[in-house]
Write a protein that binds this DNA or RNA. Sequence first.
DNA 1: TCTATGTTTCAACGATGTTTGAGATATTGA
DNA 2: TCAATATCTCAAACATCGTTGAAACATAGA
Lengths: 115, 115
Amino acid sequence: MMDERQAVAAFAALGQVHRLRIVRQLVTAGPDGMAAGMLAEAVGVSGTNLSFHLKELSHSGLVTSRREGRSIIYSAAYPDLSELIQFLMRDCCQGRPEVCAPAVAALAACCTETA
Amino acid sequence: MMDERQAVAAFAALGQVHRLRIVRQLVTAGPDGMAAGMLAEAVGVSGTNLSFHLKELSHSGLVTSRREGRSIIYSAAYPDLSELIQFLMRDCCQGRPEVCAPAVAALAACCTETA
DNA sequence: TCTATGTTTCAACGATGTTTGAGATATTGA
DNA sequence: TCAATATCTCAAACATCGTTGAAACATAGA
């Protein structure tokens, strides 16, 4: 269960264009992830700068990494992204589901097609 | 459909503890919203400071306001919150729904109880 | 072991964000 | 119109963040 401190750190991490692009790139890349070098090219930042942002994202828990040979492979931390969304919407709308049901439906469209 | 610029602004807005508390307070308050004065007390900031943060949140599109007599009533912008979540998770996990289906299920639990 | 490749660390600079108090604006009821 | 209430604007001080290049570290293959 995510607490306020973690949620603030995670949202702040996403509130920077390069870091948001990194996370988006990793979210679409799927659980296999991407090497840092590929990420730097895809996002359009220098290696040094990418490293700075990846450290931020790791500290916020939004990405995970593993070494593979010379490369370090980064992946989106799907469970943490999930908890972040839950933190934001918990106890929403005072029992009026029609208010936020559209959010649920829209998100569901992404991941239930072949489930 | 939310673009990258809007998403960065929205996440940056949520990445500040007082603003996140304001949004959480409004999300749980439901569509009727809360007066600025009540919000300031609930969140624990001065009126001046609350005003600064509410302006940020309005610019990001995460809250809306309406005047009611002497008070200004702020509400969570549920559709924009929904779009923000969609932006983050769009095209996720390369067609492997088991990866992010838990996020969908958890969010759905909030708002489909009585739907 | 030597060299090439991939990634991170460090320090410095410039830019941006947060808080505060004083004063301004808008609304209501007497 | 006047006083009270509710909220906002502004400028200044302070704190934090983002980018850069040089150098360090780790791994793999010759």
